[in-house]
């Protein structure tokens, strides 16, 4: 058995393709990106090496700072609006007596649909002239609220976030729901015997025990918000006047529309570092919390 399992040729044959493809497609390109980010390069000929100048320019680039503000606002929405809704739904659905599976299955449907479809669909929902939202407002006699939701600066950013919140509420709900279902029923019995009501059970029993699951959701939601691309690309492309632009969109446009390869790569490296730093901060945050408990 041991001899069979130490077959060097088989090991090489089994592992190498995976390692190789990951090296070539995932690992090496990161270093290439880091190198590009130090070039002044329009994609033609050879770039000139400029060191950290692109990064210095980024720090003073108002459009870039604005895109970060937008994405942080979106992070805020995800963490403090989307996740609480998901948590509430998870607790309620896990305790509902009938229709549990129906609710779970329905809430999850938007998750599996492509960002392109969601974006196109919501563009039509928001359409100023023929959109579903304005039609709905009209039938409620709220004509004064009808407006071009995505076309004007005052509402575009919020309007661009909502479809994503809508899409992933069911996702986080399901992760939390699975976590709640894995809590042993005896704990709930004990709490009920001790006279806890359902609100106390939620706050004192369920939520503390869900902490590892919540950490997953918070990380996922935060990183997802920082990386959001598809939906905004399809919905608004970052407009009007950059009001909905996030760093990923700015990066994409800088590289593929204005051909500033070096500058765009600096943005992409910034996005990686940003995701990495936030992940580490969250780990620290949750570890500290665990020690306090």
């Amino acid at each position: 058995m041991k001899k069979i399992l130490s077959n060097k040729k088989a090991i090489t044959l089994f592992v190498c393709p995976t390692i190789l493809i990951m090296l070539v497609i995932v690992v090496v390109p990161i270093f290439i990106s880091a190198y590009y980010s130090m070039l002044d390069w329009d994609g033609l000929g050879k770039g000139t090496f400029v060191g950290l100048r692109n990064y210095m320019e980024l720090a003073g680039d108002e459009r870039f700072v604005n895109s970060i503000k937008n994405s942080l606002l979106y992070v805020f929405f995800s963490l403090f609006i989307q996740l609480p809704i998901s948590l509430l739904l998870a607790i309620v659905v896990a305790n509902v007596k009938r229709g549990e599976k129906f609710y779970r299955t329905t809430y999850f449907i938007p998750v599996i649909i492509s960002g392109v479809v969601i974006g196109q669909l919501w563009q039509k929902i928001y359409n100023g002239d023929y959109g579903l939202l304005n039609a709905l407002l009209g039938s409620l006699h709220l004509e004064h609220l009808q407006q071009d939701w995505l076309g004007q600066e005052s509402t575009a950013l919020i309007a661009a976030f909502i479809p994503n919140l809508w899409q992933y509420v069911g996702y986080h709900m399901l992760i939390m729901y699975a976590g709640i279902k894995s809590i042993s029923p005896e704990i709930y019995e004990a709490a009920t015997i001790d006279g806890a009501n359902s609100r106390q059970i939620a706050f004192k029993v369920t939520i503390p025990l869900l902490k590892p699951v919540l950490e997953v959701c918070v990380t996922f939601s935060l990183i997802g918000a920082l990386k959001i691309f598809d939906l905004i690309y399809v919905l608004t492309g970052g407009g009007p006047f950059f009001t909905t632009e996030v760093p990923t969109i700015y990066m994409y446009k800088t590289i593929f529309d204005s051909f500033h390869y070096g500058y765009g790569s600096a943005i992409s490296i910034f996005i990686i570092l940003e995701c990495f730093v936030f992940t580490m901060l969250l780990k620290l945050f949750f570890r500290n919390k665990e020690e306090q408990v």
């Binding site: 497609i25 995932v26 090496v28 990686i272 995701c275």
Partner: peptide
């Protein structure tokens, strides 16, 4: 590799 965002490798 799971942590790498695809933006990082797009241009290369």
């Amino acid at each position: 590799g799971m942590m790498v965002p695809i933006h990082a490798v797009l241009l290369p």
